[in-house]
């Protein structure tokens, strides 16, 4: 990390909604994006587009960003044009987003559309980045909690994963002293038309008859074995259950003839 911040990192923050109380809150993934930007040591420019909620924006300020540019738009307005215009004017090295919004279509499409309009490459599921001297190293969440290293060059658009490091807390004093700079909407903004909505039904997985191959391992209690045999037993069980790392150790013949004292 350089001592003098030489790049600008823009973070787009949305207003979230608490899943239980329904009250407005900081969107958790946007907090993680802001945390990532602040921790990088570069100059952070925070944006919020939409109707806004001062209490929530102040919570974001409390995390340590000096000011937030609030692009004021009506309820349900499409924020894409206004946000892209503001980002294009700033021309930051990186634009960070959370994964999906908690209100509205929650489609997760906004980062992709902004990237297309700014003609910048996009990378999603980002859990960390390092930006120095025109080089960008990104860690990306992969299956099983693994991390993949990607390299590229700025400028780029990044969508942060929920597996990113936990955000810092919001400090009251900083929330009070931070500035919200409101930019009123210029011109007409098209609204997003949503069809008639109903409360979501609880979804359960559809029954799949005839596919119970997973249950093939069976339940077993193994007693009076040496530690070595117990270890072999565990490896063979894991191999049968499909754990790839255990496969080289499994002796399939022995696994079949194993004592079935359930």
């Amino acid at each position: 990390m350089s001592d003098t911040p030489s790049f600008t990192v823009a973070v787009c923050l949305s207003i979230g909604r608490h899943p239980v109380s329904g009250r407005p809150r900081m969107a958790p993934c946007d907090r993680q994006a802001l945390e990532m930007a602040i921790a990088s040591g570069h100059h952070v420019a925070a944006f919020h587009a939409g109707p806004g909620d001062e209490a929530v924006l102040r919570d974001y300020l409390g995390m340590g960003v000096g000011e937030i540019s609030h692009l004021e738009l009506g309820d349900g307005a499409d924020i894409l044009a206004a946000l892209t215009e503001a980002l294009a004017a700033l021309d930051p090295a990186l634009v960070l987003f959370g994964d999906v919004a908690e209100i509205g279509p929650s489609s997760g499409l906004l980062p992709y559309m902004v990237a297309k309009m700014l003609s910048r490459p996009i990378l999603t599921s980002v859990t960390g980045f390092e930006l120095r001297a025109g080089e960008l190293a990104i860690t990306q969440a992969a299956a099983g909690g693994r991390r993949r290293l990607r390299r590229g060059v700025p400028p780029a658009v990044l969508a942060v994963s929920r597996s990113a490091p936990a955000p810092r807390l919001s400090a009251y004093a900083r929330a009070r002293t931070g500035k919200i700079i409101t930019h009123p909407a210029t011109g007409e903004t098209p609204a997003i038309t949503m069809p008639e909505l109903r409360p979501a039904k609880r979804q359960s997985a559809r029954l799949r008859p005839g596919r119970n191959a997973e249950a093939a391992t069976g339940r077993r209690l193994v007693e009076d074995v040496t530690a070595e045999d117990a270890a072999q037993e565990i490896l063979e069980f894991l191999a049968r259950a499909g754990f790839a790392k255990a496969l080289p150790f499994a002796d399939t013949q022995r696994a079949k003839n194993g004592n079935q004292n359930v």
Binding site: R17, P19, V100, A101, E102, I103, G104, P105, S106, S107, M194, P195, E196, L197, R198, P199, A200, K201
Partner: peptide, 9 residues
């Protein structure tokens, strides 16, 4: 599902 999975159409 929309609205973070709380509503549907």
């Amino acid at each position: 599902l929309v609205d973070a999975g709380t509503r549907q159409f």
